[in-house]
Amino acid sequence: MGISDVIPVPVAVDEELEKWTIWGRPLTDVWFTTTEKIHEIIDMGPIKNVLNWGRKNSLWFLMQPMGCCGVEMLVFGCPHYDCDRFGIFPRATPRQVDVMIISGYITRKYLPAIKDLWEEMPEPKWVMAIGECAISGGPFYDSYNIINNTDRFFPIDVYVPGCPPRPEKFIEGFRALQEKIKQRKDKRGY
């Protein structure tokens, strides 16, 4: 498709414009663009770094306490540890969050529910496994009801070991996630 198909311009102009490129792509592709094309272009260009800088400094996480680590997660959002200063903030509904923290044991019964929560979250989204249970089953590794390999179900970016990890470790985990987002090395490739 050329420019002359849409607006009446001399054919010479059309031919000339087809030679022009932007970031290695024909200008006409960019001109008659779609959302996907914009995303492709953003992915190629340095603008992505600016977006990721914004994303990494506003990581809202899902308040979904499941076990002992859930209590430390509550405390992590409060004074003394104060995650607000890193742009990290707890929210109660999956529709408003960027990060899901798996803060405990995933059982056969809870897996469908937690998968639904993950799907309800808008893109871009990340997931962190915090505590031994979320990583490998922890002290309950030989239970009949626990799912050990959480990473088969979720693209986990950061693992924070500990049983439970202290709130400082939560901060450390989030800083690692921020660094990953900044360097564009996260699992889902934002």
Binding site: Y105, T107, K109, F140, Y144, N145, I146
Partner: peptide
């Protein structure tokens, strides 16, 4: 939803 089977463990 978070039944771990502690007594069996």
């Amino acid at each position: 939803y978070i039944h771990k089977g502690i007594e069996k463990i």
